[in-house]
Deep mutational scan, measured.
Amino acid sequence: MPVRRGHVAPQNTFLDTIIRKFEGQSRKFIIANARVENCAVIYCNDGFCELCGYSRAEVMQRPCTCDFLHGPRTQRRAAAQIAQALLGAEERKVEIAFYRKDGSCFLCLVDVVPVKNEDGAVIMFILNFEVVMEKDMVGSPAHDTNHRGPPTSWLAPGRAKTFRLKLPALLALTARESSVRSGGAGGAGAPGAVVVDVDLTPAAPSSESLALDEVTAMDNHVAGLGPAEERRALVGPGSPPRSAPGQLPSPRAHSLNPDASGSSCSLARTRSRESCASVRRASSADDIEAMRAGVLPPPPRHASTGAMHPLRSGLLNSTSDSDLVRYRTISKIPQITLNFVDLKGDPFLASPTSDREIIAPKIKERTHNVTEKVTQVLSLGADVLPEYKLQAPRIHRWTILHYSPFKAVWDWLILLLVIYTAVFTPYSAAFLLKETEEGPPATECGYACQPLAVVDLIVDIMFIVDILINFRTTYVNANEEVVSHPGRIAVHYFKGWFLIDMVAAIPFDLLI
């Protein structure tokens, strides 16, 4: 008679799926529990143990900040960024110097990925580790590398530091407007667009060049630039800015003055950032001319202004700041037409079709709590990747769950009947059967004279019903998954307890 339990259901295979997918890609990662103190490590794979030199037993239950890997060259700011990422709910990448158990130093890129439950609360953290440099290539500990984003994938490793954006290309926007319009339909740009040429040739750093990471940081200074100062900065030398009595002219307006920039070969870094931020506020060169004239017309309804409409929906549905990093990277690809469009465009503009998908598509409701890094690593669709929660398995109709209350009560009843059979069957065979043979035949009273025979008949009927119930009862397979398919249940029961239950259900007393 089957006594099969499996009270692990309803099970959740999400954690096993993450481990299996990460292991298949030869990654070095740990999984931490966000619900406990210090976000203790609950799993670390073999790749991480080989990377740091510690065994799994030495890593388990330690804080996922990996303070046991810190050393003299470990930056405090990087460690603080990892700790801050564990307090938030967004994906974050941090470069930090770690030390192995043998004392060797290596520069590592740590990717902190939160995993949320159905309520939107962070319950786990996945920390992925990628070695960037070994100890002989690690720089000085005073050099802070965590304020910069990861290198873009479309640049060669040897040319990542030679990417320079020439400031004269930004200063000569109005001069290039006529050349853009003359391109017409034969050019790649839309009317009114501004073409910015980027020099990728390796050259020595000069005062006129600005690194790509500095251009990325310009967006942080746009908020500090007032509207009046932006307007004066875009007017140009024809209309000098008016300053109040006793007030000095704005240095932001002076930063885009061609006369002032041409007199000296070098520009201050602050002026460069502010000038680029001011130019980015204009949607095209037409807006710059309109600002000089004193009238700013409404933005025209053409394809170039609607190019950012799908980007707005993608940004609203993005799951991490990696989408913004990807957008900034692609927006700086050289030799393309940049349409400086305000994100607050007309909502009635139709979304044009684009061959290049900048932001990841909208994630469906079932995966809105899973970050983009987890979705990318697992390579699963929205119909396959579940949320991290207890999910009731989908069972067929008329199927009994093996952990249901009805099955528990039924098993206790069958257990009592088995005990009765084990006690009274030998007793009936030894004593009652002998008395029946010696006594007179009682054929007239039937079952009324033999109450134990009636009980034995009921017990046999219950055993037959138990066999039928076992054909529709779920079970737990070797992978700790609840199986509810009727065919698989029948095959599993035939290979197991079916023969024993059938022999126990045969009414031998009635056959004798």
Rank of each mutant, 00 (worst) to 15 (best):
I42L: 07
A211G: 06
M133A: 13
R77E: 13
G103L: 08
K116Y: 10
G314R: 06
S255F: 06
A156H: 12
A290S: 05
V36C: 15
P63H: 03
R176W: 03
S104V: 07
V180D: 11
K101A: 05
D342F: 01
V195W: 01
N128K: 10
L225T: 06
A217L: 14
M308T: 06
A382F: 05
V279D: 14
V110F: 01
M60K: 01
V180S: 08
V115Q: 14
R356Y: 08
L343K: 05
P63W: 01
F106Q: 01
A190K: 08
G53W: 01
V110Q: 01
P241Y: 15
P237S: 15
S26K: 14
D136G: 06
E274V: 11
V36S: 15
G6C: 11
D102S: 06
V384F: 09
L248Y: 04
V325L: 14
T367W: 15
C39M: 08
S209V: 13
I358K: 06
L296E: 14
D259W: 14
F348A: 14
Q335E: 12
P141Q: 15
T174C: 05
G103N: 08
R252M: 07
L349C: 04
F163W: 08
S320E: 07
E365D: 13
S322V: 13
A382G: 11
P114S: 01
S264V: 09
A211S: 13
P310T: 10
P157T: 13
L127F: 03
R35T: 09
D111I: 03
A172E: 12
A185S: 12
A32F: 01
R242D: 04
A244Y: 09
L316V: 07
F348D: 12
D111S: 09
S209G: 13
H143L: 06
E208M: 04
V8C: 08
A78R: 11
R100L: 01
L248T: 09
A80R: 13
D136M: 15
R356V: 12
E91F: 09
N220C: 08
S104L: 08
R176Q: 08
S351K: 12
G314T: 09
G88L: 14
S354M: 10
S55Y: 01
P157C: 09
D219S: 05
R73S: 14
S283N: 13
G224N: 06
P386E: 04
G192L: 03
D197Q: 06
R292A: 14
A121F: 13
P245G: 11
L127V: 09
E214T: 15
D355A: 14
G183K: 11
D286P: 07
G314K: 09
R366E: 03
F348H: 15
S207H: 15
D286Y: 08
V384K: 05
L267H: 11
G53D: 01
Q25H: 11
E274F: 06
A360H: 15
D259E: 14
L343T: 15
C265H: 08
A160K: 06
K135V: 07
V138P: 08
A34W: 01
I18K: 01
E37G: 14
R269F: 12
I31L: 08
R292Q: 14
S178N: 15
G262W: 13
R356D: 07
I123V: 09
M124C: 05
D199L: 01
S379F: 05
L338D: 14
P114G: 02
P361D: 04
G158Q: 15
C39Q: 13
M291F: 11
G149S: 07
A57C: 12
P63Q: 07
S179L: 06
K344A: 04
E58H: 05
A203H: 15
N146I: 13
T353L: 11
S55Q: 08
A204G: 06
G189R: 14
A121R: 07
V194E: 05
E37Y: 05
P150A: 08
R62W: 07
G6H: 12
L267G: 11
M137G: 15
L248P: 08
S266V: 12
K362G: 06
Q84E: 15
V215Q: 08
I358C: 12
T337S: 14
A203G: 07
P352G: 07
K21C: 13
T371I: 13
V131P: 11
T74R: 01
P258M: 13
M137H: 15
P298E: 09
S178D: 06
C105H: 12
D111L: 04
P168D: 15
E118A: 11
L170F: 11
N317F: 09
A80K: 10
K101C: 01
E50Q: 15
Q25S: 10
A260L: 12
V3H: 15
K161V: 01
V279M: 09
L316I: 14
I358D: 15
G236A: 12
N146G: 08
D259I: 06
V195N: 01
I96W: 01
K21I: 10
N128A: 15
P205H: 05
A223M: 06
P334D: 15
P258Q: 06
P237C: 10
L170Y: 08
K362E: 10
G314P: 07
V195D: 05
A156I: 11
V122F: 03
S320V: 14
